[in-house]
Design a protein around this nucleic acid. Structure first.
Length: 822
RNA sequence: GCCGAGGUGGCGGAAUUGGCAGACGCACAGGACUCAAAAUCCUGCGGUGGCAACAUCAUGAGGGUUCGAUGCCCUCCCUCGGCACCA
């Protein structure tokens, strides 16, 4: 008996699988399963053991699906444009194109050692001109549809990365990449109108089989809120003028409680009102102060509210013609709603803070705690207490007071009535912002537009795509707000496609998220140069059935890709509304010290080492066995040996194969075997890999305890293990004399009858405490079970001298005898 | 502040229409094999009491419902994640 030499076995089969095209996607009809990983960005550091976890899961999943008879699309590629690649290149003084090539090579060889069943013939790379031609093509379609437009609004600017950023690229007002504090800069930008899709991005979530918290993140991010826009007249104290300020509110029910208006300091109406405002210098001074503050300073928690009253004007509350003062304050955001709000200090915490600071009127219009308790007798003490604590400000519901003819209405019912009474319009607002899409950096897809002094912005004709990124020596960011491409005159200066006159190329590039917005479509037809996708392939493979990746993409990649996909659906380029039907999030593998694996902490474990020492199959089994798939768990090299031991024991199990198996144990074995068939299949389907592996271990433990096992049993065991340990099982399958790969075998059939054929253990409880157990046939009638149980001497001990009140029998499980002292 | 997920042995974790709490694995302890070690195999392994059979307590804390609660209800504590002057 030779020993389990994982190195020899794994290298051998990886070669065979490759040379026989075992995992090549079949052109097909019939049922399909598109199993996709979020493709990696090939960093210079190579893989650590955390990276493959998700890939192992999709590998196990797709192998199961293949054995179940599905046609599989399971591809891999590289998301290689973007800041990290460029910064790595600058730091190491290698051209990004060279660095990316090198890094991909390293990544790929690391991945291939783990024995994945990717169809590498479909490999894609977002930096390949044949690929980004179509990224540019999609951009042009968006441009033509009016979804890509130039904006002159100030944008988020990272002073360290020297580029503009999208809202999604910020983390608490800092650059998500480098942590620098982000500034506002007035640089013209290309922007994608993702807000047009806000509603569909929201409602589409309901159709998806995704983790609830990812959907919730997206809902929060989109931030839909329904309210009303209401106009307030503005009057000068001296002159007769007609100006209006429109506010957005979700609380029209509190309109009678408005005691002042507040404008964002950047509100455009201020210019118009200049002549009427007697303290305009003060206003300008405040505006300048605000402009110099970063977002962090402006929104810092616990910060005192600031503002300036606009002297010389007043506003009129449309509901009761009351005159109220108008203020500017930086707690009102210019780019949300109308940039102006009505302040109700009695029922809004922020307004209250402001009112207290500047000694403004507070006017409650919703009934107080006591009356609320009368109206809603169901309120708990704690709830009432919490309302009481908040003083007379209360944000909850209640009955209107001080509200004229609306007194006594439930505030929820009053919203619409009061809004329409003052001629307000129903409006829905979103927190989602349009996507700032241009970057002032080198390593990205050039935006395929041309600026002509005569014709304006002209799209590059489709036949001239791709607009190739020029190969240059100096690609460091300019820092001027212009892309480094602007320095390359030969590339910049072109003829206008329309008038043939001299024109210049757009020099900004696309953000790193662009390429990943549609790559899953490219895999269905990777070599097509003539069309965006082959409709036949697209229609067959879409949507992605199982998508696996990190939760950090919840409000970036996963929103962007859904947006592009919906657009492509609208222009008829794809056949589904949503790209990713089912999503699973992979939980991080932390270092054994509990921190993130990082070069910085020098706690990184390289998978190559693990594969060399323990084998790819051990790594795979261990990572699936560690714990729940979506949970973060620390790496533990000690535990890894448990998986290795498991495989060693499988290797030895074949010594027990015999033609003659003992009959009395056969039934128990067969029953457990079939229970395991069911369990492993269902657990993989539900991404409960840890319990699937443990089920296999239980089965192995049981088989090892037998004198002998049948070849049939061993074969079935190998098939169940095959998705997890593809090399070992392939080798053992070969030993059994099979020439065809185990991975193209079909999944074992589950028999309910055999699974339930073994005797079961019935638990006997007395007053809920377990006292005894006995074995019985499945499906034994309750009366019979009760009879057996009551006759047991160990049970009689507890019932003797007591009165049996009742007996509860749970079929095939337990019975509980309830007794009391007589 | 709002929303979401979670809290079980020394460790990772298992068990859900409410039915044996601690599967499986790691670590640890004892034994077999060995000149010895490693590997392997066998046995034990939540706390307390007991030589043992066994009893008793125990799933973040406290209450409740139930024949029976890790799971359901109420109150509270803690951890992680998302959003956040979004009116």
């Amino acid at each position: 008996m030779n020993k389990y030499d994982h190195n020899k076995i794994e290298k051998k089969w990886q070669k065979v699988w490759e040379s026989t095209d075992l995992y090549k996607t079949k052109r097909g009809n019939g049922k399909k399963s598109y199993v996709l990983d979020m493709f990696p960005y090939p960093s210079g550091d190579g893989l650590h053991v955390g990276h493959p976890k998700g890939y192992i899961a999709t590998d196990v999943y797709s192998r199961l699906k293949r054995m179940q008879g599905y046609n599989i699309l399971h591809p891999m590629g590289w998301d290689a444009f973007g800041l990290p690649a460029e910064n790595y290149a600058i730091k190491n003084k290698i051209h990004p194109a060279v660095a990316v090539k090198k890094n991909i090579k390293r990544f790929k060889s690391q991945l291939q050692k783990i024995g994945f069943n990717y169809d590498w013939s479909r490999e894609i790379n977002t930096t390949d001109p044949g690929y980004y031609k179509w990224t540019q093509w999609i951009f042009l379609q968006m441009y033509k549809a009016g979804l890509a437009f130039q904006s002159h609004e100030p944008i988020n600017w990272c002073p360290s990365c020297q580029t503009g950023l999208a809202n999604e690229d910020l983390e608490d007002g800092t650059c998500e990449r480098c942590g620098s504090v982000v500034e506002k800069r007035p640089i013209p930008q290309w922007v994608l109108r993702i807000t047009k899709y806000a509603d569909r991005l929201l409602s589409g979530l309901d159709t998806l089989n995704w983790p609830e918290y990812i959907k919730e993140s997206q809902r929060n991010w989109i931030g839909r809120s329904e309210g009303a826009e209401i106009e307030f007249k503005v009057e000068s104290l001296k002159l007769k003028v007609e100006e209006k300020i429109k506010v957005f509110t979700t609380r029209a029910d509190t309109l009678f409680g408005v005691t002042y208006l507040i404008l964002a300091p950047e509100h455009p109406i201020l210019k118009k009102l200049e002549a009427l405002i007697s303290n305009f210098e003060e206003v300008e001074k405040y505006q300048a102060e605000v402009k110099n503050k970063t977002q962090i300073e402006r929104t810092a928690e616990g910060k005192e509210k600031t503002g300036v009253q606009l002297m010389g004007i007043k506003a009129i509350n449309p509901v009761n013609q009351e005159e109220i003062p108008v203020w500017i304050a930086d707690y009102v955001l210019a780019d949300y709603g109308t940039g102006a709000v009505m302040a109700v200090p009695a029922h809004d915490q922020r307004d209250l803070q402001f009112a207290l600071r500047f000694d403004l009127k507070i006017k409650p219009v919703i009934a107080q705690v006591n009356s609320v308790a009368e109206i809603f007798p169901g309120l708990t003490e704690a709830k009432i207490e919490s309302i009481r604590k908040s003083g007379f400000v209360h944000l909850g519901g209640g009955l209107l007071v001080n509200s004229g003819q609306f007194d006594g209405l439930l505030n929820e019912d009053a919203k619409e009535k009061i809004a329409s009474f003052v001629g307000g319009t129903t409006v829905t607002n979103y927190k989602l912002r349009d996507w700032v899409f241009s970057r002032q950096r080198y390593w990205g897809e050039p935006i395929p537009l041309i600026h002509c002094p005569k014709c304006g912005v002209v799209p590059v004709p489709e036949k001239d795509l791709p607009v190739k990124l020029p190969n240059v020596k100096s690609y460091a960011p300019a820092g001027t707000g212009e892309s480094p491409l602007a320095r390359i005159e030969k590339w910049v200066n072109v003829k206008c496609p329309k008038c043939k006159g001299p024109a210049k190329r757009e020099t900004n590039t696309m953000p790193q998220w662009a390429g990943s917005c549609w790559y899953y479509l490219r895999y269905t037809d990777p070599k097509n140069r003539k069309r965006f996708t082959s409709q036949r392939a697209e229609k067959y493979w879409q949507p992605v059935d199982m998508y696996v990746g990190g939760a950090e993409h919840a409000t970036r990649h996963l929103i962007y890709a859904r947006f592009w996909h919906k657009f492509l659906f609208d222009i008829g380029a794809v056949s589904t509304e949503e790209p990713f039907q089912r999503l699973q999030n992979v939980g991080l593998i932390l270092a054994s010290d509990g921190r993130k694996m990082s070069k910085r902490f020098s706690n990184v474990v390289n998978p190559d080492e693990i594969v060399d020492r323990f084998g790819a199959d051990s790594l795979r089994v261990y990572e699936m066995f560690m714990g729940p798939f979506n949970q973060a768990i620390a790496w533990n090299s000690d535990s890894l040996v448990g998986s290795r031991r498991f495989l060693e024991r499988v290797w030895k199990l074949r010594e027990k194969i015999s033609k003659e198996t003992a009959d009395e144990t056969a039934l128990v074995s067969a029953s457990l075997l079939h229970q395991t068939i069911k369990k492993v299949g269902e657990d993989i389907e539900a991404f409960r890999f840890n319990t699937a592996v443990s089920g296999l271990m239980i089965l192995l433990n049981s088989l090892e305890g037998k004198e002998a096992i049948s070849a049939e049993t061993f074969k079935t065991f190998l098939k169940l293990l095959a998705p997890f340990a593809p090399h070992l099982t392939e080798e053992l399958w070969g030993h059994l004399g099979y020439k065809k790969s185990i991975h193209s075998e079909s999944w074992p059939e589950y028999s309910e009858k055999i699974a339930t054929s073994a005797p079961i253990t019935i638990i006997v409880q007395v007053n809920g405490k377990t006292r005894e157990s006995f074995t019985a046939k499945r499906g034994e009638p309750n009366e019979r079970i009760q009879e057996i149980a009551l006759a047991l001497s160990s049970v009689r001990k507890w019932t003797e001298g007591k009165t049996i009140v009742k007996v509860i029998v749970v079929p095939d499980r337990l019975l509980n005898i309830v007794v009391k002292d007589s």
